[in-house]
Nucleic acid binder design. Structure first.
Length: 297
DNA sequence: CTTCGTTCCTGTACGC
DNA sequence: TGCGTACAGGAACGAA
């Protein structure tokens, strides 16, 4: 469930807890959690030991912590994290009890709060990756494995006109496009449904006939809803999404579409419908978001 | 090249 | 009570 707002909440938490601290040791308790680190768990742990963490960065749902180079040089590597469905990055007293789904643990040389990656469903992962120039803004560095991930709509580097042109070239529906992280990043199932409800667009609206105004509307809606969620700590349906101190966010109560099957639309009162979409769920208002004559899935 | 279906994983909810 | 099943779903991957 962590989408852009939830990942940003975690990034801000890490910023104050891990920046400037030097790793004493890292321990991988479940190899699947470092499966994208090709050189394996021992190499992952070895690359972290002795390195100092710099200010964490984020693009879309990806989070990374640049590691100060050997002898204090420029960072050439970063710890890259994706929380997947149930990943949590937690900080706390090092001697506290181990969580049932603790996958990776990082201790610092100051013997203070440790950093833990806890992940029930193991869809998330951590890896150490090389930093390379960003495809959108060559002045900044991004981890090599995510060069194909588009800028997110809260970044300055996000190009709204390029997004519109990409939509027109695609032969797909708008929700599929919103979930495609190579077109726009950070939007997942929850905020896609919320943005489409706010923009009054059906999820199967073909993108190749969308107007500039419609594209701008859904983009603005995505920015608004993710900004509002960020302001209250993100969306938490259960204890699976929490900030670095284990606290839940409050945006669930503000959702207009997602998860509201058969509940009244907050604009027109019509019962919110749930459609099957990509073997998942899509929530929308049948009146505010009428199905297009030519629908695309 | 693009588009789309499959796969990974485990806890919770629910029907029988 | 216990068992089976559906569901939650991001994104890499392979097929078409």
């Amino acid at each position: 469930m962590p989408e852009l707002p939830e990942v940003e909440v975690v990034r801000r938490g890490l910023e104050s807890w891990t920046t400037g601290r030097t790793v004493a040791s890292a321990e991988v308790l479940h190899p699947r959690s470092v499966r994208r680190h090709a050189a394996g768990p021992a190499d992952f742990a070895g690359r972290l030991a002795g390195r100092t963490m710099l200010a964490p960065r984020r693009r879309g749902k990806y989070l990374w912590i640049p590691l100060q180079g050997e002898e204090g040089g420029d960072p050439g590597e970063a710890v890259l994290a994706h929380l997947g469905m149930s990943g949590q990055l937690l900080v706390g007293e090092p001697d506290r009890e181990r969580e049932k789904h603790l996958r990776i643990r990082v201790e610092f040389d100051d013997k203070g709060h440790d950093l833990r990656f806890v992940d029930q469903r193991t869809f998330g992962h951590l890896m150490v990756a090389d930093l390379v120039p960003d495809a959108f803004d060559a002045r900044t560095l991004v981890p090599e494995p995510i060069v194909h991930i588009a800028a997110d709509p809260l970044e300055d580097a996000f190009d709204a006109e390029a997004f519109y042109r990409a939509l027109r070239r695609r032969k797909t529906g708008i929700k599929r496009a919103l979930l495609d992280q190579s077109l726009i990043s950070g939007v997942g199932n929850i905020y896609a449904d919320e943005a489409l409800w706010r923009a009054r667009l059906h999820w199967a609206r073909p993108t190749d006939t969308m107007t500039r105004a419609e594209a701008a509307r859904v983009l603005e809606a995505a920015r608004e809803v993710m900004g509002a969620a960020l302001a209250v700590g993100g969306t938490s349906f259960d204890s699976l999404y929490v900030n670095v101190n284990g606290e839940s966010g409050y945006f669930e109560r503000s959702l207009d579409a997602y998860g509201r099957r058969d509940e009244p639309c907050r604009r027109c009162g019509t019962a919110i419908r749930r459609d099957e979409f990509m073997n998942r769920s899509s929530y929308s208002c049948p009146v505010c978001q009428p199905r297009p004559r030519r629908a695309r899935y």
